[in-house]
Write a protein that binds this DNA or RNA. Structure first.
Lengths: 204, 204
DNA sequence: GTATCCTGACTGACCAGTCAATCGACTTTG
DNA sequence: CAAAGTCGATTGACTGGTCAGTCAGGATAC
């Protein structure tokens, strides 16, 4: 409860914009302070380092996503719908705040060096959550059990991330209708594959 | 044609090791020179900047891969075999030189900021090549034509990259047998999906 | 003799993080 | 009610260190 504005929040929001625009490594802390309309030193009053700002941004959002995945897993829905719910959450996150998602994906999730390592465990939790959905569907005989659940989860998450990366690079307008279509395509791709559903059985 | 050793090559090889170990942003040019057993200045005799070293590394390898994709596309093979050939090329590249592949993936392919942008077009060429394979299979009625070929290509490449990223992070031994198994899993996943092949038809 | 290879000390710029000082809202006390 | 005191919020100049790229000159090959 602050008087008028929570400067910590202002700095965080400014950092999202700056990281999205210039990239974490390329921007200076001064850029963040300027963007926030705040003195340089104040950044260090609220955060111990530039890294910690990125950490905070990532962890806050990622935990929400882990919650969404767990919720989808727990719901009484057919597996396709569960996967759709997860894809939906991530894609809508992008629609709602493309800059934040850009930062998370570009600077953390896909940045194997500094932060990828730090947050590996957290990132894996997401895979594991999706794998749970797959495993449950396999137990119900709806998904093929020869497929490793973790592998399927990686395919699913990898595809979602690939789609977002394309949008991020292209600065696509991403109309709601297209987002909806892509959700369907993702689920369709992961569940059904590209192959024509056995017009003639060929292999086992 | 140099007397005994091509120092340019030595520097390039040293850079691979250093980039793989410390990351592009974190390492200093001096580290590369030391690793190569060469004076600092010589690096600048052969390369105009630190970036150019990474560029060279990436482009050399990527062009070989584009060739491999084109070759697979042109071959007289069923689409599954073509996709397997592409997955095989990439996975074997990793087996042959994990450090180089780590650098390419971590510092270029997945690094959306600096280099991703520079080499976007080149990276897209790979997607396009894979999409060609898919498109051809669709024309032959072997792949479902509702799936966008470029989308399928992204799913395929995204999965391969995801697998490599996991190996890179985990420093997995990656036994030849496991590599072989993963190739099959990738093709199986992309072609057949996770779903049980229609035990009862449900939707269109 | 000259062109190319090679050396490593040096420079100029950059920037994360520190810190001493000021501000201002709120409390305590006389 | 005002003076004095308290403490977090806020400021921005400054420091210490880092490092990419330069350059003047020495070695080597032909």
């Amino acid at each position: 409860m602050t008087t008028v504005v929570d400067k910590r929040r202002v700095i965080l929001a400014a950092a999202v914009r700056v990281f999205a625009r210039q990239g974490f490594h390329t921007c200076r802390v001064a850029d963040i302070a300027d963007e926030a309309g705040v003195a340089y030193g104040l950044v260090y009053h609220y955060f111990s380092s530039k890294e910690q700002i990125l950490d905070t941004l990532f962890l806050e959002r990622w935990d929400v996503m882990l919650g969404a995945i767990a919720e989808a897993d727990g719901a009484a829905l057919p597996p396709r719908e569960k996967l759709r719910a997860v894809a939906s959450f991530i894609l809508e996150s992008y629609r709602h705040d493309p800059e934040l998602m850009k930062v998370i994906i570009v600077e953390v999730t896909r940045a194997a060096n500094t932060f990828g390592r730090t947050h590996l465990a957290k990132i894996r939790e997401a895979y594991a959550g999706i794998a749970n959905i797959v495993r449950r569907a396999q137990q119900d005989g709806l998904f093929r059990s020869e497929v490793d659940a973790m592998f399927a989860a990686q395919a699913f998450y990898g595809l979602v991330e690939q789609v977002l990366t394309t949008w991020i690079f292209e600065d696509r307008p991403t109309a709601p209708a297209e987002i909806e279509r892509v959700k369907t395509e993702i689920v369709e791709m992961i569940c059904g594959g590209v192959e024509q559903p056995s017009p003639r059985r060929q292999a086992a």
